[in-house]
Protein backbone atom coordinates (compact mmCIF):
# COMPACT_ATOMS: atom_id res chain seq x y z
CA UNK A 1 0.00 0.00 0.00
CA UNK A 2 1.52 3.36 -0.96
CA UNK A 3 2.12 6.26 1.42
CA UNK A 4 -0.86 8.32 0.27
CA UNK A 5 -3.29 5.43 0.79
CA UNK A 6 -1.88 4.80 4.25
CA UNK A 7 -2.10 8.51 5.04
CA UNK A 8 -5.73 8.77 3.93
CA UNK A 9 -6.61 5.61 5.87
CA UNK A 10 -5.07 7.12 9.00
CA UNK A 11 -7.01 10.38 8.55
CA UNK A 12 -10.20 8.31 8.16
CA UNK A 13 -9.58 6.61 11.47
CA UNK A 14 -9.93 9.94 13.30
CA UNK A 15 -13.14 11.02 11.58
CA UNK A 16 -16.78 10.43 12.56
CA UNK A 17 -18.12 7.36 10.78
CA UNK A 18 -20.62 9.22 8.60
CA UNK A 19 -17.93 11.55 7.19
CA UNK A 20 -15.24 8.96 6.59
CA UNK A 21 -16.00 7.81 3.06
CA UNK A 22 -16.65 11.22 1.57
CA UNK A 23 -13.67 12.96 3.22
CA UNK A 24 -11.34 10.11 2.31
CA UNK A 25 -12.48 10.17 -1.32
CA UNK A 26 -12.05 13.92 -1.55
CA UNK A 27 -8.75 14.00 0.33
CA UNK A 28 -7.36 11.30 -1.95
CA UNK A 29 -8.26 13.38 -5.00
CA UNK A 30 -6.77 16.54 -3.50
CA UNK A 31 -3.51 14.83 -2.53
CA UNK A 32 -3.23 13.29 -6.02
CA UNK A 33 -3.70 16.75 -7.54
CA UNK A 34 -1.07 18.31 -5.26
CA UNK A 35 1.44 15.51 -5.85
CA UNK A 36 0.67 15.50 -9.58
CA UNK A 37 1.45 19.22 -9.74
CA UNK A 38 4.74 18.63 -7.88
CA UNK A 39 5.69 15.85 -10.31
CA UNK A 40 4.83 18.11 -13.24
CA UNK A 41 7.12 20.82 -11.88
CA UNK A 42 9.90 18.25 -11.58
CA UNK A 43 9.10 16.61 -14.94
CA UNK A 44 9.57 13.15 -13.46
CA UNK A 45 7.70 10.86 -11.02
CA UNK A 46 8.14 11.69 -7.31
CA UNK A 47 10.36 9.51 -5.11
CA UNK A 48 8.95 8.01 -1.93
CA UNK A 49 11.03 10.44 0.17
CA UNK A 50 9.51 13.42 -1.66
CA UNK A 51 6.00 12.10 -1.08
CA UNK A 52 6.80 11.55 2.58
CA UNK A 53 8.14 15.13 2.86
CA UNK A 54 4.98 16.48 1.23
CA UNK A 55 2.72 14.51 3.59
CA UNK A 56 4.73 15.71 6.56
CA UNK A 57 4.19 19.30 5.42
CA UNK A 58 0.50 18.61 4.84
CA UNK A 59 0.10 17.75 8.52
CA UNK A 60 -0.33 14.88 10.95
CA UNK A 61 -3.35 12.74 10.00
CA UNK A 62 -4.96 13.56 13.33
CA UNK A 63 -4.70 17.30 12.69
CA UNK A 64 -6.02 16.96 9.16
CA UNK A 65 -8.97 14.93 10.46
CA UNK A 66 -9.58 17.50 13.21
CA UNK A 67 -9.85 20.28 10.62
CA UNK A 68 -12.74 18.40 8.97
CA UNK A 69 -14.69 17.96 12.19
CA UNK A 70 -17.59 20.32 12.61
CA UNK A 71 -16.68 23.00 15.17
CA UNK A 72 -18.22 22.08 18.47
CA UNK A 73 -18.03 23.21 22.05
CA UNK A 74 -19.55 21.56 25.07
CA UNK A 75 -20.84 24.93 26.23
CA UNK A 76 -21.59 27.74 23.80
CA UNK A 77 -19.92 31.14 24.16
CA UNK A 78 -23.25 32.85 24.76
CA UNK A 79 -24.26 30.58 27.60
CA UNK A 80 -20.83 30.27 29.25
CA UNK A 81 -21.26 33.01 31.91
CA UNK A 82 -24.63 31.52 32.83
CA UNK A 83 -23.06 28.06 32.98
CA UNK A 84 -20.30 29.29 35.32
CA UNK A 85 -22.87 30.86 37.61
CA UNK A 86 -24.99 27.72 37.68
CA UNK A 87 -21.90 25.63 38.37
CA UNK A 88 -20.94 27.83 41.31
CA UNK A 89 -24.44 27.73 42.76
CA UNK A 90 -24.70 23.95 42.39
CA UNK A 91 -21.22 23.50 43.93
CA UNK A 92 -22.20 25.53 46.98
CA UNK A 93 -25.54 23.76 47.44
CA UNK A 94 -23.88 20.37 47.06
CA UNK A 95 -21.31 21.33 49.71
CA UNK A 96 -24.02 22.58 52.04
CA UNK A 97 -25.97 19.37 51.48
CA UNK A 98 -22.97 17.08 52.16
CA UNK A 99 -21.96 19.03 55.26
CA UNK A 100 -25.55 18.95 56.57
CA UNK A 101 -25.74 15.22 55.83
CA UNK A 102 -22.47 14.57 57.69
CA UNK A 103 -23.50 16.71 60.65
CA UNK A 104 -26.78 14.80 60.81
CA UNK A 105 -24.87 11.53 60.85
CA UNK A 106 -22.57 12.79 63.60
CA UNK A 107 -25.54 13.91 65.67
CA UNK A 108 -27.19 10.52 65.17
CA UNK A 109 -24.13 8.37 65.95
CA UNK A 110 -22.54 10.80 68.44
CA UNK A 111 -19.12 10.17 66.89
CA UNK A 112 -16.70 12.32 65.05
CA UNK A 113 -13.28 11.13 64.19
CA UNK A 114 -10.53 10.66 61.76
CA UNK A 115 -12.12 7.49 60.32
CA UNK A 116 -15.00 9.57 58.98
CA UNK A 117 -12.81 12.09 57.17
CA UNK A 118 -12.05 9.87 54.11
CA UNK A 119 -15.74 9.05 53.85
CA UNK A 120 -16.57 12.76 54.01
CA UNK A 121 -14.00 13.60 51.32
CA UNK A 122 -15.30 10.80 49.09
CA UNK A 123 -18.86 12.08 49.51
CA UNK A 124 -17.86 15.68 48.74
CA UNK A 125 -15.95 14.54 45.67
CA UNK A 126 -18.74 12.35 44.30
CA UNK A 127 -21.44 14.99 44.91
CA UNK A 128 -19.35 17.73 43.29
CA UNK A 129 -18.62 15.48 40.34
CA UNK A 130 -22.30 14.65 39.99
CA UNK A 131 -23.19 18.35 40.12
CA UNK A 132 -20.55 19.22 37.52
CA UNK A 133 -21.72 16.50 35.13
CA UNK A 134 -25.41 17.34 35.58
CA UNK A 135 -24.93 21.09 35.01
CA UNK A 136 -22.58 20.58 32.06
CA UNK A 137 -24.91 18.13 30.33
CA UNK A 138 -27.90 20.36 30.93
CA UNK A 139 -26.14 23.38 29.42
CA UNK A 140 -24.78 21.30 26.55
CA UNK A 141 -28.26 20.22 25.47
CA UNK A 142 -30.56 22.97 26.77
CA UNK A 143 -28.26 25.95 27.42
CA UNK A 144 -29.38 27.96 24.41
CA UNK A 145 -33.08 27.41 25.11
CA UNK A 146 -32.46 28.49 28.70
CA UNK A 147 -30.65 31.63 27.55
CA UNK A 148 -33.56 32.50 25.25
CA UNK A 149 -36.11 31.82 27.96
CA UNK A 150 -34.39 34.32 30.25
CA UNK A 151 -35.32 37.03 27.69
CA UNK A 152 -32.19 39.01 28.42
CA UNK A 153 -33.13 41.56 25.76
CA UNK A 154 -36.09 42.66 27.87
CA UNK A 155 -34.08 43.96 30.79
CA UNK A 156 -34.56 47.32 32.43
CA UNK A 157 -31.50 49.22 33.74
CA UNK A 158 -33.68 50.74 36.49
CA UNK A 159 -34.35 47.29 37.90
CA UNK A 160 -30.68 46.44 38.51
CA UNK A 161 -29.92 45.77 42.21
CA UNK A 162 -29.01 48.70 44.43
CA UNK A 163 -25.44 48.65 45.65
CA UNK A 164 -24.67 51.24 48.26
CA UNK A 165 -21.00 50.47 48.74
CA UNK A 166 -18.74 49.86 45.78
CA UNK A 167 -15.85 47.71 46.77
CA UNK A 168 -13.80 45.13 44.96
CA UNK A 169 -16.00 42.42 43.60
CA UNK A 170 -16.07 39.38 45.88
CA UNK A 171 -14.45 36.52 43.99
CA UNK A 172 -15.94 33.04 44.25
CA UNK A 173 -12.64 31.60 45.47
CA UNK A 174 -12.16 34.16 48.23
CA UNK A 175 -15.73 33.56 49.42
CA UNK A 176 -15.20 29.81 49.37
CA UNK A 177 -11.89 30.14 51.22
CA UNK A 178 -13.48 32.32 53.90
CA UNK A 179 -16.33 29.82 54.31
CA UNK A 180 -13.95 26.88 54.71
CA UNK A 181 -11.91 28.87 57.24
CA UNK A 182 -14.97 29.89 59.25
CA UNK A 183 -16.54 26.41 59.19
CA UNK A 184 -13.25 24.99 60.51
CA UNK A 185 -13.20 27.56 63.30
CA UNK A 186 -16.82 26.90 64.12
CA UNK A 187 -16.06 23.18 64.30
CA UNK A 188 -13.11 23.83 66.58
CA UNK A 189 -15.12 26.03 68.95
CA UNK A 190 -18.05 23.62 68.94
CA UNK A 191 -16.28 20.31 69.23
CA UNK A 192 -13.63 21.25 71.79
CA UNK A 193 -14.91 19.68 75.00
CA UNK A 194 -14.69 21.93 78.10
CA UNK A 195 -13.95 18.96 80.34
CA UNK A 196 -13.56 15.21 80.01
CA UNK A 197 -12.09 12.38 82.03
CA UNK A 198 -11.73 8.62 81.76
CA UNK A 199 -9.10 6.06 82.75
CA UNK A 200 -6.61 7.16 80.09
CA UNK A 201 -7.13 10.88 79.76
CA UNK A 202 -8.24 13.86 81.80
CA UNK A 203 -8.99 17.09 80.04
CA UNK A 204 -9.91 20.37 81.65
CA UNK A 205 -10.44 23.68 79.95
CA UNK A 206 -9.17 26.72 81.81
CA UNK A 207 -12.24 28.27 83.53
CA UNK A 208 -11.06 31.71 82.38
CA UNK A 209 -11.12 30.56 78.75
CA UNK A 210 -14.48 28.76 78.64
CA UNK A 211 -16.70 31.92 78.55
CA UNK A 212 -14.93 33.11 75.38
CA UNK A 213 -16.08 30.12 73.34
CA UNK A 214 -19.80 30.92 72.94
CA UNK A 215 -18.96 34.55 72.03
CA UNK A 216 -16.43 33.41 69.44
CA UNK A 217 -18.94 30.90 68.07
CA UNK A 218 -21.59 33.60 67.49
CA UNK A 219 -19.05 35.94 65.89
CA UNK A 220 -17.95 33.21 63.52
CA UNK A 221 -21.57 32.29 62.76
CA UNK A 222 -22.42 35.89 61.87
CA UNK A 223 -19.37 36.20 59.57
CA UNK A 224 -20.23 32.84 58.01
CA UNK A 225 -23.75 34.01 57.21
CA UNK A 226 -22.38 37.08 55.40
CA UNK A 227 -19.90 35.05 53.38
CA UNK A 228 -22.61 32.58 52.39
CA UNK A 229 -24.64 35.51 51.06
CA UNK A 230 -21.49 36.78 49.30
CA UNK A 231 -21.33 33.59 47.31
CA UNK A 232 -24.51 34.62 45.52
CA UNK A 233 -24.31 38.41 45.76
CA UNK A 234 -20.72 39.09 44.83
CA UNK A 235 -20.54 42.63 46.07
CA UNK A 236 -20.41 44.38 49.41
CA UNK A 237 -23.15 46.37 51.06
CA UNK A 238 -22.82 48.55 54.16
CA UNK A 239 -24.56 46.01 56.36
CA UNK A 240 -22.38 43.15 55.15
CA UNK A 241 -19.21 45.18 55.61
CA UNK A 242 -20.14 46.31 59.12
CA UNK A 243 -20.92 42.73 60.23
CA UNK A 244 -17.77 41.24 58.76
CA UNK A 245 -15.46 43.99 59.98
CA UNK A 246 -16.91 44.05 63.48
CA UNK A 247 -16.94 40.25 63.86
CA UNK A 248 -13.48 39.97 62.32
CA UNK A 249 -11.93 42.59 64.57
CA UNK A 250 -13.55 41.38 67.81
CA UNK A 251 -13.07 37.70 66.95
CA UNK A 252 -9.42 38.16 66.03
CA UNK A 253 -8.68 40.10 69.21
CA UNK A 254 -10.42 37.49 71.37
CA UNK A 255 -8.52 34.66 69.72
CA UNK A 256 -5.21 36.44 70.09
CA UNK A 257 -6.10 37.12 73.75
CA UNK A 258 -6.57 33.36 74.20
CA UNK A 259 -3.16 32.73 72.70
CA UNK A 260 -1.59 34.73 75.51
CA UNK A 261 -3.61 32.96 78.22
CA UNK A 262 -1.37 30.76 80.44
CA UNK A 263 -3.20 27.63 79.30
CA UNK A 264 -6.28 26.73 77.31
CA UNK A 265 -6.64 23.02 77.89
CA UNK A 266 -5.00 20.96 80.61
CA UNK A 267 -4.57 17.45 79.31
CA UNK A 268 -3.29 14.66 81.55
CA UNK A 269 -2.74 11.31 79.96
CA UNK A 270 -2.11 8.00 81.67
CA UNK A 271 0.42 6.20 79.55
CA UNK A 272 1.24 2.55 79.99
CA UNK A 273 3.44 1.21 81.48
CA UNK A 274 4.72 3.99 83.78
CA UNK A 275 1.72 6.32 83.48
CA UNK A 276 3.69 9.51 83.04
CA UNK A 277 1.62 12.64 82.80
CA UNK A 278 1.90 14.47 79.54
CA UNK A 279 0.13 17.55 78.35
CA UNK A 280 0.71 17.80 74.65
CA UNK A 281 1.09 15.68 71.56
CA UNK A 282 4.68 16.91 71.34
CA UNK A 283 5.41 15.50 74.79
CA UNK A 284 3.91 12.21 73.75
CA UNK A 285 6.40 11.96 70.91
CA UNK A 286 9.16 13.12 73.23
CA UNK A 287 8.30 10.30 75.60
CA UNK A 288 8.45 7.72 72.85
CA UNK A 289 10.70 9.37 70.23
CA UNK A 290 11.70 6.07 68.65
CA UNK A 291 8.26 4.47 68.79
CA UNK A 292 5.80 6.56 66.79
CA UNK A 293 3.68 3.44 66.35
CA UNK A 294 3.07 3.36 70.10
CA UNK A 295 1.87 6.94 69.95
CA UNK A 296 -0.49 6.10 67.10
CA UNK A 297 -1.73 3.10 69.07
CA UNK A 298 -2.36 5.32 72.07
CA UNK A 299 -4.11 7.87 69.90
CA UNK A 300 -6.32 5.16 68.48
CA UNK A 301 -7.68 4.55 72.00
CA UNK A 302 -8.56 8.21 72.37
CA UNK A 303 -12.29 8.93 71.89
CA UNK A 304 -12.88 10.60 68.54
CA UNK A 305 -14.56 13.65 69.98
CA UNK A 306 -11.33 14.47 71.82
CA UNK A 307 -9.22 14.59 68.67
CA UNK A 308 -9.62 18.36 68.30
CA UNK A 309 -8.29 18.75 71.85
CA UNK A 310 -5.00 17.14 70.92
CA UNK A 311 -4.16 19.52 68.07
CA UNK A 312 -1.93 22.45 69.00
CA UNK A 313 -4.81 24.76 69.73
CA UNK A 314 -2.76 27.91 70.26
CA UNK A 315 -1.13 27.57 66.87
CA UNK A 316 -4.54 27.18 65.25
CA UNK A 317 -5.78 30.27 67.05
CA UNK A 318 -2.77 32.29 65.90
CA UNK A 319 -3.30 31.22 62.27
CA UNK A 320 -7.04 31.85 62.20
CA UNK A 321 -6.87 35.00 64.34
CA UNK A 322 -4.16 36.31 61.99
CA UNK A 323 -6.34 35.54 58.97
CA UNK A 324 -9.28 37.37 60.52
CA UNK A 325 -7.11 40.39 61.33
CA UNK A 326 -5.72 40.40 57.81
CA UNK A 327 -9.23 40.32 56.37
CA UNK A 328 -10.31 43.15 58.66
CA UNK A 329 -7.27 45.21 57.68
CA UNK A 330 -8.16 44.71 54.01
CA UNK A 331 -11.76 45.69 54.71
CA UNK A 332 -10.75 48.88 56.48
CA UNK A 333 -8.33 49.76 53.69
CA UNK A 334 -11.01 49.21 51.07
CA UNK A 335 -13.50 51.25 53.06
CA UNK A 336 -11.11 54.19 53.45
CA UNK A 337 -10.28 54.00 49.77
CA UNK A 338 -13.89 54.48 48.74
CA UNK A 339 -14.25 57.28 51.34
CA UNK A 340 -17.49 56.13 52.84
CA UNK A 341 -19.40 59.10 54.27
CA UNK A 342 -20.54 57.30 57.40
CA UNK A 343 -16.99 56.54 58.60
Amino acid sequence: MNLVQRYVAEVKRHLPYRMRASVAKELRGLLDDELGALAEQKSEPLQEQEIADFLKRYGHPYRVAASYWPRRAMIGEKTYPLYRRALHAVTVWMLVFVVAMSLGRIAQNQTWGIVEIPQFIAEVWSFLLFGFVAVTLYFHYFGEQLEQRLRLWRWDPRKLPEIDVWWDEVSFLSALFAIVELVTLLGLFTITAPSYADETIRLQMDPAVAPYLPVLKWLVLASLAVWLVNLFQRYWTRVKLIIVLACGAVGALLMLRLVFAPSILDISVNLPPKDPATTTLGQLFAWWPDKPLRVIEWLSHLPYDLWPSIIPIKLVLVVFGGLMLYRTYHGVRAVTRVRMPWL
Binding site: V23, E26, L27, E34, S67, Y68
Partner: peptide
Protein backbone atom coordinates in the same frame (compact mmCIF):
# COMPACT_ATOMS: atom_id res chain seq x y z
CA UNK B 1 -4.23 23.05 2.04
CA UNK B 2 -5.17 22.07 5.56
CA UNK B 3 -7.21 25.26 5.93
CA UNK B 4 -8.66 25.63 2.46
CA UNK B 5 -10.10 22.18 1.81
CA UNK B 6 -12.00 21.82 5.08
CA UNK B 7 -13.27 25.40 4.59
CA UNK B 8 -14.75 24.52 1.18
CA UNK B 9 -16.49 21.52 2.70
CA UNK B 10 -17.91 23.64 5.50
CA UNK B 11 -19.21 26.22 3.05
CA UNK B 12 -20.77 23.43 1.03
CA UNK B 13 -22.37 21.87 4.11
Amino acid sequence: EGTLYPLIRRLES
